[in-house]
Write a protein that binds this DNA or RNA. Structure first.
Lengths: 350, 350
DNA sequence: TATTAGCACTCTTTTTTATCGAGTGCTAAC
DNA sequence: GTTAGCACTCGATAAAAAAGAGTGCTAATA
């Protein structure tokens, strides 16, 4: 048995109706609201076929049909049309031009969850192979040093070092020379044990300080690695199928903890430009088995990439969500380039 | 009518039993589980009095009694004993010695919510009048500068400055001198318009750079002002009286948004050493009318103070919560002093 | 006078039973 | 191939009944 034109039309109607109402769709509804001019009995036969083919499901005898995961998949892949024109409300979200990337992402997550009525997540992913551009140790006062490491993409890391005994300016200059000489241009992957012991040897009695600098570098790569911002967790209460107490608790927990989300995102991050849709189990997160997740990658330039994701019920408005994400992608790429023209560009890591 | 010895004992039993079970407490229960050796009928009379006095409430005729807010208040103020000895599980929570204050606080919130089974919040409040210790501008490469500002309490702020035209070393040294000379030792409050225009004048054509440094300072005070970390929002699903869908949604929203919490905390922050309990409406947050909030202030030394709060149902285990908070206070004050002995102490702001 | 046993009464909760109605599947007719 | 018709299923809603917990009051008791 194959999906013919008519079956597809019926499937399409079932899914669209279900997306709107969240209620199982019956044969009579279809017969009335399509231009097929078929009686409910005929529709019933077709629906029976569609069920056998796995596109729709009957929650119980004597209920209408709802889309199965396979049905949603078919819809997303073949039936849905891009709704590119209708994103008026999203069109230009106004983000104050703070330079702090994290607060921008946080804000963006909020806006998105507000306009879509789904839960959202945004991650920032800094590229791992990030060369060290500059290292400097300076004396803040008699018993305190400040170590600063600047890596590519202007990621800056600093640490305050409390000294037990003072250090003279000459030694400081020497250390700065050793460190810059040994580290500049290297990405963390390049810093082998050999490099480290070489540095330590040169540092002589001030090994401690070299260690601190290396720590700072290590911390930078591990910690900046993946930050996840979420918003709109409570939106799930708007969809009864997600808010049965147990379900809600698990979902919100996942959104609060973020760990699992981070794993999911980093596993599925491959930098390509597509908007992806994960329906039910496709996302591999157990708590999301009743959800769909739509993700897009963005690119802020300077190698700052990341993921924007929207989490909602399977019956989410895929068309709207996807066109929103498309718009976001576009806007974000423009976001951090606009103030380069002012002559001075400022970035900060907080 | 007055509260005599016996009434107090009965009230105490009602509250303790209700804290455990969450169910209205009946007269027979009291009569069985106290050593008063009174029949349920006598207890009933006493309960009737207690209700008249406003300490307990009957949810409906033919239900037992539950404590009123006034009852809880009396319990917290007079009946509860500090349970100082029984905090075994809390005794030494192991926090990896990351030096990043925010990740410590985040972790701590998690541990607390996990051990108490309530929602938790932790804020860090950096004292506003924070003097500038050190300012430095250095050349990262031909068209990039890095500005670093170290303020008291080792709060470090840095910004990357992209140059339109190169700057020579001499100018850089001059700028550094001007900035340090003009800013060191000053707290943000001291930096008047006069100081600013003085600096700008001295900087000549490099006004831009001075502005950036001032921006960094401004940002530091405004942004570090109050950060709120929450954890364990989903714990509220463990208490039926809080998890009726509407309630849960509002509560979790408040915990997610954090804004209202921040306001609440900063309004009630007065740096004194007491552990405070807000029952129901006492907290002034509408969504928390069915909750109790217990807060404590901590002090990390160096003027870093903040609040730890626990949010749970009114029938929370006040004794345990309060002794946990006491323990936390103690441990936190030790937290950032312990590694001073290692010869090198490290702090960082990320 | 304080306490208690006894009992009718109230109100929630749980269980049971009945009813409704949407929707199906099947058969037979068109 | 399509459709009308009809018996049947099963969830949802409603109504009724039963169970239970706890009270308030009265009258008896120590």
């Amino acid at each position: 048995m194959e999906l013919d034109e008519r079956k597809i039309k019926i499937l399409d109607t079932i899914i669209r109706t279900y997306l709107e109402t969240g209620e199982p769709v019956g044969s009579r509804t279809i017969s009335k609201y399509t231009d097929l001019n078929l009686s409910s009995a005929t529709i019933r036969n077709e629906m029976s076929d569609l069920e056998e083919l796995g596109y729709i499901i009957q929650p119980h005898t004597s209920a209408g049909r709802i889309p199965s995961d396979k049905g949603y998949r078919f819809y997303v892949d073949h039936l849905m049309q891009a709704k590119d024109k209708e994103i008026s409300d999203m069109k230009d979200f106004v983000i104050e031009h703070t330079e702090r990337i994290d607060s921008v992402l946080k804000q963006l997550a909020q806006i998105l969850s507000y306009t879509t009525n789904y839960a959202t997540l945004i991650t920032s992913q800094v590229n791992r192979d990030n060369a060290i551009k500059f290292v400097q140790i300076s004396k803040v006062d008699e018993d305190q040093l400040l170590a600063v490491v600047v890596m590519g993409k202007n990621v800056v890391k600093n640490k305050v070092i409390n000294l037990v005994e003072p250090i003279d300016n000459e030694t400081l200059m020497k250390l700065n020379f050793i460190l810059n000489n040994g580290l500049n241009g290297k990405s963390p992957a390049d810093i082998s044990l050999g490099v480290i012991s070489g540095l330590k040897e040169q540092a002589g009695e001030h090994v401690d300080i070299v260690s601190v600098v290396l720590d700072a570098i290590a911390e930078t790569i591990s910690q900046e690695d993946l930050e996840v911002y979420t918003s709109g967790a409570t939106n799930i209460f708007k969809y009864p199928e997600l808010s049965s107490s147990e379900n809600a608790s698990n979902l919100i927990y996942a959104l609060e903890e973020k760990k699992e989300l981070a794993e999911f995102v980093s596993e599925n991050f491959d930098g390509d430009d597509e908007i992806k849709v994960y329906i039910g189990d496709e996302s591999d997160i157990k708590t999301m088995k009743d959800c769909s997740v739509v993700t897009a990658t963005y690119d802020l330039g300077d190698g700052m990439k990341g993921t924007v994701g929207i989490i909602g019920p399977k019956r989410m408005d895929y068309e709207k969500v996807m066109s929103n994400l498309k718009e976001i992608k576009k806007q974000m790429s423009g976001l951090f380039n606009s103030n380069k023209t002012k002559g001075i560009e400022v970035k900060s890591d907080g």
